[in-house]
Amino acid sequence: MDWQAIWLSVRLAVSTTVILLAVGMPLAYWLAFSPHRWKFLVEAVVALPLVLPPTVLGFYVLLAIGPRSPVGALYGRLTGGMLPFSFQGLLVASVLYSLPFTVQPVAAAFAAVDRKLVEASWCLGVSRMATFRRVIVPLALPGIATGAILSFAHTMGEFGVVLMVGGNIAGVTRTVSISIYDQVQGLNYAAAAETSLFLVAVSFTVLALTYALQRRVWAIWPMS
């Protein structure tokens, strides 16, 4: 089994999930509570990765982070490195690719929090930020957990975007799915079967855990 690729995928999935929670929660808050009339445009952009082929997304990410783009040039000046075909570049692509998997469940969970509880907190003199932390997040926890786990699992199984942005560099951008593809191309079916089975097992376990966890969380806080 290609432990190096598995380890890389896990690192990528964990980093992506952490970044997505940090970026996705404020975005989800805005989507859930802003009265802005053009909000639907942002919602559509967030949902794009669900319907676009990974090649299209990967192509644009590659253009956007290439050394001739402003982002790529800035990154080059700051770090001396390049984003395409690096772990960091892969991370950028993964975050964009899994954005709806975090933002949608989290925004739905935020919107489901009783508005009166939020207003009650504000009236008690508690700031918006503290209300978010003390009322909205605890009550939306099942949705946040769902978003995080879906992003993790989705990144673990990512293929097309990785191929477009990261290529196939062992230890740098060769994730599990690329490794399986590689093994199949090399007619090394036994190794491919092993790694595939491993990925199925991990995905199943993670999803089963999520649902089990959700059940229990709901039992602790029934939203009556």
Binding site: D114, K116, L117, E119, A120, S121, W122, C123, L124, G125, V126, S127, V135, P138, L139, W221, P222, M223, S224
Partner: peptide, 20 residues
């Protein structure tokens, strides 16, 4: 002024206690 600075506490019809 935002609600936080008015300190006029609103009691909702159904009490709006924090369920958690």
């Amino acid at each position: 002024l935002p609600p936080q600075q008015r300190r006029a506490v609103f009691l909702f019809q159904d009490c709006a206690l924090f369920p958690h």
